[in-house]
């Protein structure tokens, strides 16, 4: 069992958990992920590591409650409770090279996992431009944390209630206009966001690294559920990734494969909501 020692709710659907696991906190590197199980008979769900602290021996996860398992976690994972399983760090760590200028782009839930990358690039001596996108001002989190590790921070909101009005791709346009010498863009978020980030940088031929989030079971290379097409070749996200060259990834295929269990997810959610005796979750929160 893995103790939850802190929790913070960013919104009705997004929450943060700090989980005690000193070994994992010591081993984790930016870009890696964990698989957690809320309870013994639960699903194994992959979550990108949002932060880790060697000193405190904790790993931070940011979760969006959209399906049965994550809604259940939102309800059950309180401080003092514990996760049934947490295994990792999985996947290859991100390649944090010695670069002059990088842009770290996070959209929606991807804002959290891009933070350790921004921090690592900063520590490696790069000029870091943070670009983070939210639906509105109320949903913004970790602004201070980003300001601490970014030389510039561009906040984008859909409704313009904070920062610039627009999507993270608008933020990327702004950044590359101002800094034509950006060497790499790291984009983490929903697949459609990463797809358009890659399209935004393609004409300028800026190296763009994305962190993929396909469906997986074991996370150790055994099941092949997480296979993705990169440059026309089949790769397993869990052991060959999760970072890939955004210009090579077949995002449309990834998005199609993410719908694989849509019907089952709906059934599970309805059943769970019914058992909760409430109407929560009958309307799925929109995924950015």
């Amino acid at each position: 069992m893995y103790d939850i020692i802190a929790r913070e709710d960013f919104s009705d659907s997004t929450f943060l958990l700090e989980v005690k696991h000193p070994l994992l906190a010591k081993a984790a590197r930016p870009g890696q992920f964990v698989i957690v199980m809320c309870q013994a008979e639960g699903e194994r769900i992959p979550l990108t590591i949002a932060d880790f602290s060697c000193e405190q021996g904790t790993v931070t996860l940011v979760i969006q409650a959209v399906g049965k398992t994550t809604l259940e976690m939102q309800q059950r994972c309180t401080v003092g409770s514990a996760l049934y399983a947490m295994v990792g760090p999985m996947g290859k760590p991100s390649d944090i090279g010695k670069l002059g200028k990088v842009a770290c782009v996070g959209g929606g839930l991807g804002v959290a996992p891009v933070y350790p990358q921004a921090r690592a690039f900063k520590e490696a001596g790069a000029y870091v431009i943070g670009i983070v996108g939210f639906r509105s001002k109320d949903l913004i989190f970790w602004q201070r944390k980003f300001e601490d590790v970014c030389d510039e921070l561009i906040i984008c909101t859909d409704d313009g209630s904070a920062g610039i009005k627009g999507l993270v791709t608008d933020g990327i346009e702004m950044a590359v206009e101002k800094h034509p010498d950006i060497e790499e863009v790291i984009a983490i978020g929903p697949p459609v966001m990463m797809k358009f980030c890659a399209e935004a940088t393609r004409p300028r031929d800026i190296k763009t690294t994305v962190s993929l989030n396909p469906i997986m079971v074991d996370g150790t290379g055994m099941c092949g559920g997480c296979r993705v097409s990169v440059g026309g070749e089949m790769r397993f996200c869990c052991v060959d990734g999760p970072d890939f060259d955004g210009h090579q990834v077949d995002f449309d295929e990834l998005m199609r494969r993410l719908t694989r269990f849509r019907e089952d997810e709906r059934v599970a959610l309805e059943r769970w909501s019914r058992n909760q005796g409430c109407r929560l979750g009958q309307e799925q929160p929109a995924i950015e």
């Binding site: 079971v217 092949g224 559920g225 296979r227 199609r256 494969r257």
Partner: peptide, 22 residues
């Protein structure tokens, strides 16, 4: 051993195609 093999024929990315391991 792990790491299941596929054949590389068209259509392997369709939903409903999976390895026996999975």
């Amino acid at each position: 051993a792990g790491y299941p093999k596929f054949m590389g024929i068209p259509g392997e990315a369709l939903n409903g195609v999976l390895s026996a391991n999975e």
